[in-house]
Design a protein around this nucleic acid. Structure first.
Lengths: 214, 214
DNA sequence: ATATGGTAACCTGTATACAGTTCTACATTT
DNA sequence: AAATGTAGAACTGTATACAGGTTACCATAT
């Protein structure tokens, strides 16, 4: 069974992630509780979890949906650029035929559903598939969290990714390098892959919102 | 004022960190609550926080002090070796005379109190002093957490750091490189500094406990 | 002696209740 | 009109209470 707290956590996480709940939006325990038909305790638990994940700020008075900033974006991508290539380098030697087949089919799925939530989901699974083989539980957990946070920037600041075409090409390159077992190559391709998304987001944020909320 | 939850969190964190509470020790909400004279809610909050920090496992039945393993040690140090040099490279150009003076005095403090908790505290402040100037809130928070987790391995698996002498020498090297503003140099020295602690711990864990608890 | 079943102790998730704090908005003063 | 003060609304932290679920242990059967 799933606890009430877990249910509320998941629902809120989704709403914050997709931008349905805007940055700065206050999330009081009582209102969250009422909205999901639970008592304040599980609502409180959910807010605490989301705060630990960095999606919510726990102020003295009330919790609020965390804002975005170019500074934070910078940090998140710096971390991803450091960790994901590392994870890649460790994982690639352990990737087998089965994973490569699955990755190929995920690539097809992405090409079939450009610029949609389906694309984003397939993309996440594509990369996760490599990382899993690194056998690094903590690193993967951290990476998942960082990806969630940067995905939020995509939802909030980009009309709706006009870049999936280019990214699919990069995925094909990555897949090829995985195929020949070139760990260092995949790592470097991954780093650039991430850096390009960073640049893309940065350009859009600088252009559209010169002074973003804290 | 400090909330009851924060007080319990701090106290428990200390006890888990220093190994007073051994890995595997069950921490039920009720007993923690009774022990600190609070109700179950703040006790529950504290356990959740510690779980998010990775010091406690939130099982289905009861929370337990997290175990240690060579695999986790590996992950923690891989992360530190990736992040702390990065943080260093960013920070060093911003370190001024004031910080260098303070670092010098901290170095003296470490040399004056070898192999003690005071040494560990001064050591933490020494490195933190550099990192602060990187202006990377999230990275620093993450680094703090990783350092806490690895410090626990020191407490649990090393009789009581017989290495402070060598480490002080390395600190002196780092301080010198900071003095001449050699960011890349400090980064590399920091990476090796961390790697050596990793080796040291690994040797001891392999020697003393061939099959550590999960 | 070992396996099996049942009961009591323990523990968690959640609801409700209360005290104290923070914010808001309006009235009062300057 | 701006500043200040003040009641009330909103919110949080915490305590207490209750309904399951899990574990441990002991008695009984094989």
């Amino acid at each position: 069974m799933e606890s009430a707290a877990a249910r509320v956590t998941g629902a809120l996480r989704q709403r914050v992630l997709t931008g349905e709940l805007r940055p700065g939006e206050p999330l009081s325990q009582s209102r969250v509780a009422a909205e999901y038909g639970v008592s304040r305790i599980p609502a409180r638990d959910a807010l605490q979890t989301l705060a630990a994940e960095g999606l919510v700020d726990l102020g003295a008075f009330t919790a609020v949906v965390r804002g975005t900033s170019i500074g934070e974006l910078q940090e998140l991508y710096e971390l991803r650029e450091a960790i994901e290539p590392l994870l890649t380098k460790i994982a690639v030697p352990n990737v087998g035929r089965a994973e490569i087949a699955l990755m190929t089919s995920l690539l097809g799925e992405m090409e079939a559903h450009p610029s949609s939530m389906d694309w984003l989901a397939a993309n996440a699974r594509f990369h996760a598939l490599i990382y899993t083989r690194a056998d690094r539980v903590r690193m993967i957990e951290l990476t998942t969290q960082l990806r969630r946070l940067t995905d939020r920037y995509l939802y909030l600041h980009v009309d709706m990714f006009g870049e999936t075409g280019r990214l699919d090409l990069e995925h094909r390159e990555i897949l090829e390098a995985v195929g020949i077992g070139d760990a260092a190559g995949v790592a470097e391709l991954t780093r650039r892959h991430i850096a390009k998304s960073h640049d893309y987001l940065l350009r859009h944020m600088l252009h559209r919102e010169p002074a973003p909320q804290a």
